[in-house]
Amino acid sequence: MQNISSDTKEADELVAIDEVAAIATNVVKGFEIRKAIPSREKDDMVQEVIRKYLEKKTRINKAYKGDANPKTYLTAIFYRMCCEIIRSGHKSWDHIKKEDPGKYMVDLLSSSGSDNQFIIRNEAEYLKKILSLFDDEKTKIILFLKFFFGLEIHSSDLKAYSRNYKKAGLDRLLHTIPKTNQQTFEILVKVVNKHENSDVKQDAVRIWLYKRIDQIIERLNGSMNRANYDRKTFQLLFEYIYAGEDG
């Protein structure tokens, strides 16, 4: 790397400078892969990140409490620096133009071609990670989405949501086939109230589920044009993962 005079770890350094460069390169590589930056800008971006790091090093080191691995900490710092650089305006690159992203998504997710299957499997893994980050709500979201999208619900889904699902009659409720959206939420609100021993209103469940759906879609799409899902294509991806389960 240019402009770097030493490759040894000084007393106040979190990470040796050669490792700093490797971490910066790795983070920038991630942005390049996601096409958030063009390849030709990669080296400049690495230099810019290292320059910013050297400039703010004292503050960065001071803010570090020692709860995370220093390399992971720097990775998180550099990730934000890259976002800042990209959003700062002087680096505004054209993203790949999409002719009809909605149609492309539908075609992609409906197709069985092996190339497309490769992409879909990767997307499926990404969606699973996103769902995981909903933490203790993950099983509820999956169960409710399965019901909402009319997918078959297995006992494993019910058990993951509620140990006492049989006693509470949740299996009977969730094996009912609703005829309208209204009925869907009438059933879901009963499930919530039985399981959580609460008295929430139907609207609250609807608002909660729609909010989570929108969040998932936003996370799938990412802040830098990662993809372009809408409710329909998200449903297709969700079904790809959860419709074929045989528990």
């Binding site: 992609l108 990767n122 990662r226 993809a227």
Partner: peptide
Amino acid sequence: GIGGYLLFYNQPD
């Protein structure tokens, strides 16, 4: 090559 639109970042894969 197959559509030029869905750009994901899933390195572990």
